[in-house]
C-alpha cells in the first residue's frame, strides 16, 4: 500500500503570522506565532489513527477540516498572558497550531472522526471498505 497519509510541510513554521487578520491583532499581541504540532500516525485494522499534541487548545477552538484530500488542523490557543513584557524566561512561543496532511483515496472521508482529550487530538481515518466481488447472473433466453 502506498502512503495513505502524508504530512505536509507547513508553509510557515514557527514564524509570526502575517495574515491580514493577525495584523489587526498585532497591536495587542505583537508576537502571535504559528507552530507545527508533533504528531504520531499509526495503522490499525480499520485504517489510520493520527495523534497530535495541542496543549492549550480546547474543543471549541479547534478547527479540523477536509477539503480536496487535504486534512487541515488549526488550533487556537488562548494566551495565558497577553502582556509579553512580563515574560522572564521563554522556551516556547505562544501561538496557534497549524498542520495539514494529504489524504489518499483509501481514506473514507465521510467516516473521519476526532476527539480531543487533555490537549491531545486523536483523528481516526478509516479505510474505504473494499468492494466485494459481485456475481452477475446471466439469464439464458
Amino acid at each position: 500500500m502506498s502512503e495513505t497519509i502524508e504530512p505536509q510541510q507547513p508553509e510557515r513554521d514557527d514564524s509570526p503570522n502575517r495574515d491580514d487578520s493577525s495584523l489587526s491583532q498585532s497591536e495587542e499581541s505583537p508576537q502571535r506565532w504559528v507552530r507545527t504540532p508533533p504528531i504520531d500516525i499509526y495503522e490499525t485494522e480499520e485504517g489510520l489513527v493520527l495523534c497530535a499534541d495541542l496543549p492549550g487548545v480546547s474543543a471549541e477552538n479547534l478547527d479540523l477540516q477536509v477539503q480536496d484530500n487535504r486534512l487541515t488542523l488549526f488550533g487556537r490557543v488562548d494566551m495565558p498572558n497577553d502582556r509579553l513584557e512580563t515574560l522572564v524566561h521563554q522556551e516556547y512561543h505562544q501561538g496557534d497550531f497549524l498542520r495539514s496532511f494529504i489524504l489518499s483515496d483509501d481514506v473514507d472521508h465521510e467516516r473521519i472522526s476526532a476527539k480531543l482529550t487533555d490537549g491531545v487530538l486523536e483523528v481516526r481515518l478509516p479505510r474505504v471498505p473494499r468492494s466485494q466481488p459481485r456475481k452477475i447472473s446471466i439469464q439464458a433466453d
Partner: peptide, 30 residues
C-alpha cells in the same frame, strides 16, 4: 525540530506578574 532532540520536556515559560510568578508548561495528554 520534529524529533525535538535535545529540547527539555516540558517546555515552559516564566512570567513575572508583579505580585506573583506564572509558569506555563505544555503537558498535553497529562
Amino acid at each position: 525540530e520534529n524529533p525535538r532532540i535535545g529540547r527539555p520536556y516540558p517546555m515552559l515559560n516564566l512570567y513575572d506578574l508583579g505580585s506573583e510568578y506564572l509558569i506555563t508548561a505544555e503537558l498535553s495528554g497529562c
